[in-house]
Design a protein around this nucleic acid. Structure first.
Lengths: 129, 129
DNA sequence: GACACCTGTCAAAGCAAACTGACACATGTC
DNA sequence: GACATGTGTCAGTTTGCTTTGACAGGTGTC
């Protein structure tokens, strides 16, 4: 099953700008092989941990990946990221339909469109002890 | 009929980064109502002509819109832009398939992947005299 | 010629994103 | 304790996109 194919304009924008980056595309590609934790993923792709961390946050904020902080058998905390099985069909029609729901200019005088925040879901599991 | 749904990694990146901008999404949305020329479009959307010009170039480079310099009845040169009926389905699989064809780091020492340029097609028509 | 409309481009400024290095913290092993 | 591995975050630089204003054409009309 895939993600909802009809997001809001704001969400679509976040998705597109999140994927509009070579590093992030590569990260998504690497995660199709399975979930992985940050440090290992950084080595695999060949980029610094702080940088990868930022990109992963961007992808998570767009709802394209999910991170879960787990405890390894040895007791070390490791943050595993995995792909969300998304599926969005880009067409002029979709853009036209969602464009009206785009934030104008972040005008401070425009209540009612707020409270649209989305909190990062970071599950915490324990795998044995 | 829609555009090819399987571009190269480089093209996908251009498409995504082109659409990952609120102004450009709005431009695409405005063009779904029909073709229009730059100055009129600038007034309709409410942005400067030079700025709109740049955004249109970005969209054209990504193959999402097409521009054609035509001559109006009065003889004035007007650049009309219209939408390309694209359709791309974003999935992890697509990204994984195209990621290997992404340009590494624009390394100068890597021939063979070049000559992949794409020239902007700018038709010139004459409507009457 | 002056005006209104269209086109295109350039340089400088402004701003957001990307990137790096260093720090603080925790755990298991030698 | 020293070391290697994992986590997260922060400050500062660098890079690149975005934006603006000004300029240089072109045409038709008054």
């Amino acid at each position: 099953m895939s993600e909802a194919s009809v997001p809001t304009g704001d969400e679509l924008l976040k998705i597109l700008s999140a994927l509009g980056n070579p590093h992030r595309l590569r990260i998504v590609a690497a995660l199709t092989e399975g979930r992985n934790y940050v440090s290992a993923l950084a080595r695999e792709i060949g980029m610094g941990r702080p940088l990868l961390h930022m990109h992963l946050q961007r992808l998570e904020a767009a709802g394209l990946v999910t991170g879960s902080l787990e405890l390894s058998e040895s007791g070390k905390a490791m943050k595993y990221y995995e792909l969300v099985d998304f599926s969005y069909t880009l067409t002029p029609g979709l853009v036209a339909a969602l464009a009206p729901t785009l934030p104008r200019d972040a005008k401070p005088a425009d209540p009612g469109d707020q409270a649209a925040e989305r909190q990062h879901q970071t599950t915490v599991k324990e795998s044995s002890g």
